[in-house]
Amino acid sequence: MEFLSVVALSKNFGGLRALHELNLVVREGDVFGIIGPNGSGKTTFFNLVTGMFPATSGDIRFRGEPTNLARLPSHEIAARGISRTFQNQRLFDRMTVLENVLVGMHTRLRSGLLSAALRLPRTRREEQAAKQRALDLLGFFGDRLRPRAEHPAASLSYANRRRLEIARALALQPKLLLLDEPAAGMNPTESRQLMEDVRRIRDGGVTVLLIEHDLSIVAGICDRVAVLDHGEKITEGAFEQVRGEPRVIEAYLGRSARRGGKARERGGGLEAGGGDARTR
């Protein structure tokens, strides 16, 4: 049984081929990186897996289930155990930090409207348990979020907002977590911390799909990566294997690389130490 298998997945927007015939298998327990230059289809792929829009064609199968996720609405995909964060943060700013996490737990709460209205003891117990679990999730990030549980989400610092997005996504108790550029805008210390956080999430039994521009993070935590360019997968494998492939270097650095540009001079590979690969 394959954990996540993507077969011939395509998405066209009008005449634009955002994703073309993507085939991919993600093993359970991996941190799997999706890398590639801007506009290569990475976020489109995330949007298809989470049902933001239907695929033009192709299949997405999760944990051997016969249902094709490429045809399901987002909320049903979320209920099956796939959650995500967003490249441009989408917190509920008018809610408190704690409430943001509680929204994530929505699918796991069973109490109906009537029992909530009647304040049945079972409902109250469930609410208490939910609140405690939400606080525990905030505690995943040490004392970054938990002391701010009752603050409005809008008041958080940039890095804490990114952390809250992850906590909210974890509240869905996902089997698969999609992180869309979680380190964007973070300083090196925060990025290192984030890598540690992602490892802890993986060790907690959650498979992680990661879009990241910071190649040092990709090199540090991804078990495997797929490289996309112009909506197609150009290669796949361990980052150390694929980073030296000419097609990868070309995708990232353009034609200048082929003419013997920067990347070649440094020893023929994408730099994973220097951080940002958005050199184009």
Binding site: R90, R94, T107, E127
Partner: peptide
Amino acid sequence: TFGLATRATAENALTARFMG
């Protein structure tokens, strides 16, 4: 819980979908 879901939808329906 349903009220919370309603507020989430009011604030951002698209994100609310991804929260299940």
